[in-house]
């Protein structure tokens, strides 16, 4: 496979949050990801673009799909990929995050993908490490790669974000997927609505430049894309919400509620789904409306694009500054 890449315009060493990006940055990443979608559909999915580079996946919260998505992305680009999860790391032995960072730094990785329960943890690591840091979800702050893969999925179906109305429905308190999507979609010219019971909306959510609806049917009127969010299990037991039964009745996406959206509206979900809680199986499994499996496919391509893009940022290398990399 060709390892000669055209130059791109993307001057970021890290991907910490959507708010660091500009609209042209996003377009660059989406365009790059399109190439990897094609590559991933071939028999030989592997290149040696990142040969010799080391990628560490550092996950402080359990994750199956995001971690394996980044792992596959790294491997398909030819990087040496190491997965570290909290269970097998020395974090359990009382090491601070900064100690972990300096230890890992001494191993001279080129890219670090981190998921952490504390908002701002990737920023802290980025200050302490010499490699690229990619945020795979931090606390209730951001989950930029999810928003980018969602954007890629939408763009492939709808073409443009301009004038698009996207509803994000469900547990917004957890927030990071919703917030990254709000920032990205708003930046690209889409209108964003949040639909949730008031207890699942963070205070001051209306300050994010979105329209807020508590009535799902009203909120879905005229919507082009519906992003369902996973309801965290601990929310269901009467503290934020009385029951899954009541939640499904008022906020679960079934065909009846879907009929209030624009005809042909598309349904997305970052997974894993709680069937019968936030989404009815008949909607989730309806190939005419559901993009849920496609999102997973786009996830790998998008993460390859992210790794590719940040790995090109080598300001101290006069030969390679902002140039296409030649391995």
């Amino acid at each position: 496979m060709s390892i000669q890449k055209a130059p791109i315009n993307f001057a970021h060493r890290h991907l910490l949050k959507i708010r660091d990006l500009t609209a042209p940055d996003v377009v660059t990443l989406l365009d790059l990801a399109e190439e990897y979608v094609a590559q991933n559909r071939q028999v030989n999915k592997k290149t040696d673009l990142l040969r010799g580079r080391t990628l560490i996946n550092l996950f402080f919260e359990p994750s199956t799909r995001t971690q394996s998505s980044f792992e596959l992305a790294g491997k398909r680009l030819g990087a040496d990929t190491v997965n570290m999860s909290v269970r097998s790391s020395s974090v359990n032995k009382g090491e601070t995050l900064i100690d972990t960072a300096t230890t890992l730094n001494a191993m001279r990785p080129d890219m670090l993908v981190i998921r952490h329960g504390a908002s701002g943890a990737p920023q802290l690591l980025a200050q302490k490490m010499d490699c690229s840091v990619i945020n795979a979800g931090d606390g209730t702050n951001e989950h930029p790669s999810q928003a980018l893969l969602d954007a890629l999925t939408i763009r492939r179906h709808v073409g443009s974000f301009e004038g698009l109305t996207v509803a994000i429905c469900g547990d917004i308190t957890h927030g990071r997927v919703a917030k990254s999507n709000i920032y990205l979609l708003s930046m690209m010219g889409a209108r964003v609505r949040l639909i949730a019971p008031p207890t699942l909306l963070p205070p001051a959510a209306d300050r994010l430049g979105v329209e807020i609806f508590h009535d799902m049917k009203k909120g879905l009127e005229g919507v082009d894309v519906i992003m369902m969010l996973r309801l965290q299990m601990e929310r269901m037991e009467g503290t934020y919400l009385p029951s899954t039964r009541e939640y499904f009745q008022f906020y679960g996406l079934d065909h009846e509620k879907l009929s209030y959206a624009k005809p042909g509206a598309l349904v997305m979900h970052p997974g894993p789904m709680n069937r019968g809680v936030e989404i009815d199986s008949r909607v989730a499994d309806d190939p005419d409306v559901s993009l849920i499996h496609e999102q997973v496919e786009m996830g790998v391509a998008m993460r390859m694009a992210i790794l590719d893009a940040v790995s090109r940022y080598r300001p101290n290398d006069p030969e390679r500054k902002n140039q296409g990399s030649t391995a």
């Binding site: 037991e237 009385p242 009541e246 009745q249």
Partner: peptide, 15 residues
């Protein structure tokens, strides 16, 4: 308001 009047978990106020 709360299940079993225990002051902890909300009832199904909508239903």
């Amino acid at each position: 308001i709360t299940k079993g009047l225990e002051g902890q978990k909300m009832t199904e106020i909508g239903l």
